[in-house]
């Protein structure tokens, strides 16, 4: 399949597709970070994670509308406000869901899967009732449009670049929060030994709620980023949920770095193959390889060997 292209052409195809893959990578990372926190740290399968992302996307859409109509002069910075609001909206909903539903199911992971699937159906229909079935999009402010030409053949879109930067910042923040802060220590303590954590005075219920809310909030940020590279519909989130779960499992559920590495691998593989094969075959091939590898190495790529 490479024979039709010259060498420099191939290189620039890889570069461009690689960059296109980086946008996908960013969404994967942000979605997967939230999911990895919820699944890896709490053992909860959140099938509604895509809908939390879409909540962030709709929040961004509303914020953009607000800026456009009320303070058009400030439209250039709406995105950063929207990102913050998206985080808050998804985190609040997450907190509510944890309180109403998840906390009753901590010892039944398969049941959280079914219950959150139900939640996702309800949220999808709610979005459809509120925002309509048609997809909505935001118009980017001028400074985010256009692209930077790196060479004659390679151009990098600015919005993609911004999404990348946002992803890197969020990933760093999550890392610092989980591994360098007192709160992160509490979360990990609860994961490793809940009764002991309770005994030393950690309010495990509160830790659970905030952890879940944080994971959902990050999904909200993913939604904000998502508006920059695609349009938003009620079921857009569902399209990503299986891929994201594979990313998390592939990376080894306990490891944040593994999650990022696996998001990178999967998104790059898919995006590069997409250029040469049809989109659906690229996806089939990617998923097949991931599933195949998971069958050979079920603990994921970055899991530690421990006494079972």
């Amino acid at each position: 399949m490479f024979a039709d292209y010259s060498m420099p052409e191939l290189m620039s195809i890889f570069a461009m597709q690689g960059f296109a893959g980086l946008s996908l990578f960013s969404i994967f990372v942000l979605m997967a970070l939230g999911l990895a926190i919820i699944f890896g740290q709490m053992g909860v399968i959140n099938m509604a994670h895509g809908e939390f992302m879409i909540l962030g996307a709709y929040t961004t859409y509303l914020t953009a509308g607000l800026f456009e109509n009320v303070m058009p002069g400030l439209y250039g910075i709406y995105f950063f406000v929207a990102m913050f609001l998206a985080f808050i909206a998804s985190a609040l909903l997450g907190m509510l869901v944890e309180w109403l539903m998840i906390r009753h199911l901590y010892h039944r992971p398969l049941d959280t899967l079914l219950a959150t699937w139900g939640l996702s159906l309800i949220l999808q229909q709610a979005y459809r009732s509120i925002f309509g079935a048609r997809e909505v999009g935001v118009s980017l402010p001028d400074w985010m449009m256009g692209s930077i030409a790196v060479t004659d053949l390679v151009e990098i879109p600015i919005n993609g670049l911004i999404v990348m930067v946002v992803t890197l910042v969020i990933a760093t923040l999550v890392y610092l929060l989980m591994f360098r802060s007192g709160w992160g220590r509490q979360v990990r303590a609860v994961v490793q030994n809940r009764p002991m954590a309770e005994a030393v005075g950690i309010d495990t219920g509160k830790v659970d709620r905030i952890t879940f809310a944080l994971g959902c909030g990050i999904a909200g940020v993913a939604g904000a980023a998502f508006t920059m590279i695609g349009s938003t519909g009620p079921t857009s989130g569902q399209l990503y949920i299986v891929d994201t779960f594979l990313v998390v499992v592939f990376g080894g559920a306990q490891s944040l770095l593994g999650t990022i590495a696996s998001a990178f691998t999967i998104s790059q593989a898919q995006s590069t193959m997409e250029f040469f094969l049809s989109g659906s075959m690229a996806k089939v091939l990617t998923l097949l390889v991931v599933v195949g590898i998971l069958m050979l190495r079920p603990q994921g790529l970055f899991a530690l060997k421990v006494r079972r």
């Binding site: 992971p109 899967l113 779960f245 659906s280 599933v291």
Partner: peptide, 26 residues
Amino acid sequence: KRRVGGVYFAIITQAIAAILTILIIG
């Protein structure tokens, strides 16, 4: 045989459902 069970099995079977659908449509 590799002792994969529980949620991992659920997710992988779900991925297989996704793969087959995409394949049939494609």
